[in-house]
Each structure stands twice: as C-alpha cells, then as structure tokens.
Write a protein that binds this DNA or RNA. Structure first.
Length: 563
DNA sequence: GCCGTTTTCGGCCCGACTGTTTTCAGTCG
C-alpha cells in the first residue's frame, strides 16, 4: 500500500505552497487529497490500475495525474518544484503553535532562519521580536510553542484520555452544572487523542472556569477567561474547557466534536440551504433556527443525527440514515483473557466472578502457549490442569467459560500445539508475539488455513506510539481470513486497538467476522472492552459483524461449524 | 486544485482571539 506515502507527499506540497503564499484553496485541495488517501480503505494502486482515481470526490484531473506520475515513475514533478529552494527542516517548524506560514516566511526571508536552532537563536537575541508585525508577546507565544514542539507527538491513547476526562467532568459537575460532555476526537472515540476538549452549558462562565482550573491534579493554568479555560495536568496532558449558554449547547457540541472535514461538509450543505452554522447555532439571517440540541443542527439540514464515531466525512453524511452500530451493551462476553496460569494476575474463578458482575454471559480463558516464554506461556500439561479448574469455576460461578488458548504462531507458520490438542479446545486465537522483525504475512496466512484456528489476535502487532508492528500485508490477511472464515480481533487493550478502525472497516466489507477481546491480564483491564467497541463503531460495525454479541449457544455453534 | 444541470468560471466554512495596529493580519480550532 502506497496510500500513506502519497498522502505524505501531498501534505508536504500543501506545507510548501502555504509557505510560498500560494492560493489558499489550492493548498486546501492538496490537503484534502492527502486526507482522502489516508482514509482510503482500498489500495490506491488498485484504483489507479482500474483508471478510477477521479472517482474519489476531491480528486480531479490534476491530482489524478500527479498520482499516476508518482506510481509510474516514483517521482512527482510538482512536489520537486514545490519544495525547491526550501531548506529541509524548515517546514516542520509550521507545527509550532503560534508559528504560521506568514511568520515563518518572514523569519526565513529577513533573518535567514533555516532550522529550529536558528529560530531559537533569533528569539534569544531579540531579532525576531523586532520584525514588522512582531512583538514581545508574539515571540513569547512562539517560544512556548517551541517547548511543546520539542516534546511533540504525544497524542494520548483513548484508554488514558477517557478515564482522565471522566474524572475531570465529575469535578466540573461539583460546580453545580448539569450539562458537561467531552467533545473533539475523544467523543469520536479516535484511537489517539491530541487535545482534550470538554464542553459545558452555563451562564456562570468565569466561575465554572475558575473551579475547573482548581482541579486537584492541575500542574499549570494556561488560560482562564469567561468562556474558555485551559490547564495542563500533572501527567502532562492539556485539557480545554469551553462554557457556552444553554441555548447554544447542541451547536457547540456538534461544532467542537468535529471532525473538521465533517463540519466543513455540513456547513456547505447549510450554505446551499441559505443557512449558516457556527458554534452558536444554525442561523437564517440573524435568526437562530437551531442549536439547543445537537439533533436539531442535523435535522434542519435534512439529516438524521450522526453518531460521533462516524463523523469523519467518510460517506456518513451522504448516507441519509443512521447505520445500526454495535453498542457496548450488545457485548455478551470477553473471549481473550489471561489468568494466573500464564501472565495474568487473577484466578479463573476471580475472572469468572468479575465477568458476571459486568453482566457477561460467557468468557474464554486464553493463556499464552509455551513458546511465549516471556509471558509464562503454558505447555500441554498445564493446559490440561487448567481445563479441570475451568470446569470447577464454571460450576461454582454459573457462567459459561470457554476453554481457549492464545496460540503462538511461529516463524514458519507452524503452531505451538499439535492439532490433537487444539481440537479439544473451544476457541483458538492465533497470535504473533515473536519474530517481530520479519514479514509475518506468510505465517499468519498459514495459521488461518488451519481449521483449528478460529481467530487471529491483534493482527498487525502494533503498539500505539511505541511500536509499528511487524511487517504484514493486511489486504492478504483480510482476503484469506474471509476465505477460511477466520475471525480477526479488535484487541481492546488501549495500547493496541489492533485491528485499527480502518482495517476493521475493510475486513467487514470483505465479510470477515470480528472478535472483540480485552486481552486482560487483570480484572481492571477487562474494562478496556469499551475502547474496542469505540473502534468497532468507528469501523461502522454492527452487532452482526461481531462474534461476542452472540448468545453462548450461537457462538458455540459458530466455533464448531465455521469451517 | 476541485466542482457543477441554474454555473466550465468563480466560487470554495466560520468565528474568536491575539497582538499589533489605529482598522486589521495572522493563527487557531
């Protein structure tokens, strides 16, 4: 897949043209093309070979020609021209808060700034502040931006952000407000979150914000006004709170939830209808015609309310009706859990009892197998012993416990246990934890072909913002999983969330069943299931696409009959 | 650069904030 490669190039063209002061709409067109490529679930080369590049809205003849040129020759003349004369390392400075294209061009043109080091230098010696239009405050801002920039790329996993936000929302409620809600990418349940946005309805703006900034783990207060406050908590994450009047809450929630492309499309629909949308409402002339409720914003545009997880401008607006999405309450059980037998912290019985508390009808215990030495993988004898314990716990707790294994897929695609062992298990989850440096496509395909392997766990092996994952051709895996009726897992552990939403969407479209597994190693981690559900919703999955929404008996027969 | 049966040209989403200005440009979300 060269989608991302091309997206990067178009983004860089956007940056370069912006720096050079090119027409804003041209720049927007390149950025839009980049985004389309990032979101594209199909391989761009497939569309290219089929001559269907311009079938993507946002890709016209100009962009299509450039994609074609690049895929044919590995080069793009426009890109070369765009970055011509711009020192490498200059454009990344556009990512500094407070540093836009105009300021950067000024600093480059007048002071010869070519790098971050140069920039720091002209800040220190005061030359930047003396440029026309600049001043001490602006420079101070850029200086602050530089501090963050150094520690850049610290998007937070949804698994960290959501509990933190819930805690802060509880705190805000103590100031006596009713309506408080997360917004932004957190509300859209994106796998990682940049800024954390919270919205609240009240007439007492400054009072609420004062209270907000006194949150117990506040490290620094960045801003404190009547409608907006901004803090950095001790863990280093920035949280923004906005306070709007009650009658604007729906419009503001819609507005701050985004995504940006989704909102842009809504506003152009509004414009066609002679309406104007802002965070204060939908207006016909000066008259507010919607804005108290989020639903109203959509309905006045002739649209049904769209779940936040879908708001990415990936066709959800044109769809005209709300697709049935899976809900957390549809989940009847967790089928990827580790106990003390391998590297988990709890006994089978403790897990079963906790699962019952969560309202589950069933679970599966899936230890690591023997080659996973680092995780205390179990051998055949220990597996045998565990089966007896599972039978006992099942009788005592009164919840269906499937006997499973998270089976190591080895270098050559062979499996850690023999088939006669696997045949006696209810569920076998094939997984790669070793040989992370090599291309694991072949081994995974071979594992799918084994009729005893029901599921492939965390198929790419990525760890969000820590590890890219092993090499694997997901197109091939999805295709083969579809033909062997092997399920693919959305691993709900917040560092994995693998399959990603994009891959899961593609898998669904190919007819592959999805399993949601917490991969829990202690009771607390079982709660991660909700993050997995978030990914599933972003992937447009319905209840029918996900295996652990089935009743125990239905699941059992799926596992037996799937080949 | 993209787009369109009211347009093949002339539009393209919107508002706040900030700091630098004496009326507005730049940046951000």
């Amino acid at each position: 897949m060269r989608n991302r490669e091309l997206a990067n190039i178009f983004n860089k063209i956007g940056d370069a043209l912006e720096f050079k002061g090119e027409m804003p709409f041209k720049i927007a067109a390149y950025r839009k093309a980049a985004r389309i490529l990032e979101d594209l679930t199909e391989d761009i080369e497939v569309l290219w070979k089929a001559g269907e590049l311009t079938s993507m809205p946002g890709v016209g003849t100009g962009i299509a020609k450039k994609i074609d040129e690049y895929l044919r020759t590995g080069e793009m003349k426009k890109y070369r021209e765009a970055i011509e004369g711009i020192p490498p390392g200059l454009l990344v400075l556009l990512n500094i808060q407070g540093m836009g294209p105009k300021t950067l061009r000024l600093a480059h043109g007048k002071l010869g700034v070519k790098s971050k080091a140069d920039l720091e230098h002209v800040i220190e010696d005061g030359r930047l502040a003396r440029l026309p239009g600049m001043g001490p405050k602006k420079v101070e801002n850029i200086k602050k931006g530089l501090e963050v920039f150094t520690a850049e790329e610290k998007r937070i996993s949804i698994g960290i952000a959501l509990p933190l936000v819930e805690e802060i929302i509880e705190w805000i409620k103590k100031a006596g407000v009713q309506k408080v809600a997360p917004a932004g990418s957190l509300r859209r349940m994106k796998e990682t979150i940049g800024d954390i946005d919270i919205l609240c309805a009240s007439q007492r703006g400054s009072e609420i914000i004062e209270h907000f900034t006194n949150f117990e783990r506040t490290d620094r207060v960045l801003a404190k006004g009547e409608t907006k406050g901004s803090i950095v908590v001790k863990e280093g994450h920035q949280i923004d709170l906005r306070v709007v009047p009650e009658e604007c809450f729906g419009a503001a929630l819609q507005y701050f939830t985004g995504s940006k492309p989704h909102n842009i499309k809504l506003r152009s629909i509004a414009r066609e209808r002679g309406l104007k949308i802002s965070e204060y409402g939908v207006f016909k002339g000066d008259r507010r015609v919607a804005g108290r409720e989020e639903e109203g914003v959509y309905s006045i545009l002739g649209l049904a309310w769209i779940p936040p997880e879908l708001r990415e401008d990936r066709g959800e607006i044109e769809l005209g009706k709300v697709p049935e999405l899976i809900d957390y309450n549809d989940i009847r059980g967790d089928l990827h859990i580790h106990s003390r037998y391998s590297d988990g912290a709890n006994s089978v019985r403790e897990i079963a009892e906790f699962a019952k508390e969560l309202g589950y009808e069933y679970i599966a215990i899936t230890e690591h197998s023997k080659s996973a030495k680092y995780a205390g993988g179990i051998d055949e004898r220990k597996l045998e012993a565990q089966m007896a314990e599972i039978d006992r716990a099942q009788g005592e707790v009164g919840i269906k416990i499937f006997k499973g294994i998270e089976l190591e897929i080895l270098k050559d695609g062979s499996l850690d246990f023999d088939d006669d062992i696997l045949e006696n298990l209810d569920i076998v989850i094939g997984a790669v934890h070793l040989f992370l440096k090599q291309d694991m496509t072949g081994p995974i395909l071979r594992a799918c072909s084994n009729p005893n392997v029901d599921v492939i766990a965390h198929p790419t092996g990525r760890l969000i913002s820590r590890r890219e994952g092993y090499k694997v051709d997901m197109n091939k895996v999805i295709e083969h999983a579809a033909s062997t009726n092997t399920a693919l897992e959305i691993n709900a552990y917040y560092d994995r969330l693998d399959l990603s939403d994009v891959n899961a969407k593609r898998a669904k479209e190919s007819g592959v069943k999805i399993l949601l597994g917490s991969d829990a190693h202690n009771l607390g981690m079982m709660g991660a299931m909700r993050f997995g559900v978030g990914v599933a919703r972003r992937a447009w999955l319905s209840k029918d696409d996900v295996l652990n929404t089935l009743l125990a008996a239905e699941l059992e027969s799926w596992l037996k009959d799937r080949v």
